[in-house]
Nucleic acid binder design. Structure first.
Length: 501
RNA sequence: GGCGCCAUCGUCUAACGGUUAGGACGUCAGGUUUUCAUCCUGGUAAUCGGGGUUCGAUUCCCCGUGGCGUCACCA
């Protein structure tokens, strides 16, 4: 069996679409589960969509995700991906940027012209536009009328001499059944009469996606082409091109689309579609990868938690699905929370720091600025975090000089408002008895609970007001652990100011 | 509209043609000596419709319906 080589071929639009993430992931998994290679190729044939710095931001985000390429362009200077760190192409099949391969496309296009399988078309865009309009008015499918398909040699020479701009179009068979084979979906049949003599090379000399893609995949010896199902309509054109060149096509896998909640295509305007957006919100690469894998692939057993390397071991093409799936943000949140809970506290603190900045400016006290304090704070909220960006609001009360909350919040369930004051005073008394050096979660709990139990008092009547006085919140970590982190002085201060109200 | 892809709980999905149609997320209920969260237990909920083929269809075939994609010198 020849070597498995897959590729990821994005256009440099400046961000990585969440749907594309799944495509790279699967390309990576197919390659790596077969000891093969993953190639990065930049498809920048659309000049109008080109975004400056796009290639770099693309590689950066892929690095962050943890997907490494075996081959690709060297524009990635500065990226942490070691293979590209020196800024040179990696691999023997370069260049890996399409606009740097123009002479290659020209050579192959000329070959098709010489063999009578493609032709120059001198029709102006205006004529084409008008033709389409007329066809649509007559309710006919808009299709190039092949006016230049059989131009005489003389006329061609004349046009060329006059420097008339032209595109190169492929000659489609007039009538033939085209069978395109998808690894997951089986044979898909098309009628060549439904196909247009599509453009291979634009008048600018730049190839279309359809042409560049086929030439590149073949010359780069790609074994498996992974792409979205939106490409199925042009699948027969690709196959016909491989036929025209007498090349063996690679294996094709069309991935099902990812839809939004409403069932439509995931698009930029209706929310977050770029991986960068998810990163900003505090989603972890582990969660994004696990989630993406689960959409379109299913493991053998019941376990659904997989790291990237576990996926490599587990992945099989035949376990991929073909029906479109709705992007379920709640499951992503669950997975993200899961990975946050499993994370080492030191690492979590590091990731949370950017989201904590605004809290640090809310205190005049220096103590809460220490890494030791921040670590304790984050640890208390770890099990509550679904996204990193929630850490700011969740922990705000740890940094405030003065809490601001409605006094009624101190009253628990059906306890009388008048009980709050004496109950808090009792708590204060108990806390004051605890020596500074014993100010820990456990001994605070011991000191309070044992007393309350001995007197047969209702825990909630004391612990709720205590917790609210310390946090000012309806929901928070427990009162003892909060008290420990806050420290004796701050805790007592908060309890006293609450009891005064 | 032409062409094409797809169709199992609300969502992601599993099920050699034979299962009480399984799991996960969500949701609901209970428990985990105070809230929230975590964790545990339990419940809820699905094979689009109609024809075939078969002793037997979620599964195979056809038709319908629905959803989606695509019809450029964009990818």
């Amino acid at each position: 069996m020849s070597r498995i080589r897959t590729r990821f071929a994005p256009s440099p639009t400046g961000f990585l679409h969440i749907g594309s993430l799944r495509t790279v992931l699967f390309a990576y998994l197919i390659a790596k589960s077969n000891d093969g290679d993953l190639i990065l190729r930049i498809e920048d044939t659309d000049q109008s969509r080109k975004v400056k710095g796009a290639k770099k931001s693309l590689t950066n985000i892929l690095d962050w995700i943890g997907i490494k390429f075996d081959e690709g362009p060297g524009i990635i200077r500065g990226a942490t991906n070691a293979a590209h760190a020196n800024g040179e192409d990696v691999g023997d099949f370069g260049p890996y940027v399409q606009t740097e391969r123009l002479d290659i496309y020209k050579k192959y296009a000329d070959q098709l012209i010489n063999e009578g399988k493609a032709y120059r078309c001198f029709c102006t865009p205006e004529r084409l536009a008008k033709m389409r309009e007329d066809q649509q008015a007559k309710k006919l499918p808009p299709r190039y009328d092949r006016r230049c398909r059989d131009l005489g040699q003389n006329e061609i020479e004349k046009n060329l001499k006059n420097n008339k701009p032209f595109v190169i179009r492929q000659k489609m068979p007039k009538t033939a059944e085209v069978i395109a084979h998808d690894e997951l979906r089986g044979d898909i049949k098309f009628e060549s009469s439904d196909l247009e003599d599509h453009v291979l090379i634009k008048s600018s000399g730049i190839p279309t996606y359809q042409f560049a893609n086929v030439v590149d995949d073949h010359t780069m010896e790609i074994s498996h082409v992974l792409r979205g199902e939106e490409w199925i309509p042009s699948f027969p054109k690709n196959i016909l091109l491989y036929k025209a060149f007498a090349w063996t096509p690679p294996k094709f896998i069309h991935m099902p689309l990812t839809l939004n909640k409403g069932g439509g295509k995931l698009s930029k305007r209706q929310g977050d579609v770029s991986v960068e957006d998810y990163k900003k919100k505090g989603y972890l690469p582990e969660a994004l990868i696990n989630f993406s894998a689960l959409s379109g692939w299913h493991p053998k057993g019941d376990n659904e938690i997989f790291s990237l390397s576990e996926l490599v071991g587990e992945f099989k093409i035949k376990d991929m699905g073909i029906s479109p799936s709705v992007f379920d943000i709640e499951k992503l949140d669950y997975l993200n929370g899961y990975y946050i809970r499993k994370m080492e506290i030191e690492k979590l603190v590091g990731l949370c720091m950017p989201f904590l900045e605004k809290n640090l400016s809310k205190t005049t006290d220096n103590r809460p600025q220490t890494t030791e304090y921040i670590k304790k704070v984050v640890a208390l909220e770890q099990e509550r975090l679904k996204r990193l960006d929630e850490i700011g609001d969740l922990t705000e009360f740890f940094f405030l000089d003065k809490l601001d909350y409605p006094a009624e919040l101190l009253v628990w369930k059906k306890m009388e408002a008048s009980e709050v004051k004496p109950n808090l005073e009792l708590i204060i008394k108990l806390l004051e008895k605890i020596p500074d050096k014993n100010w820990t979660d456990d001994s605070i709990e011991e000191g309070i609970i044992s007393y309350l139990k001995a007197k047969d008092l209702k825990l909630g009547n004391y612990l709720w007001p205590m917790r609210v006085a310390l946090t000012g919140r309806q929901a928070s970590p427990g009162p003892f652990e909060v008290a420990e982190v806050l420290g004796k002085d701050v805790s007592l201060k908060r309890l006293k100011s609450a009891s005064i109200k």
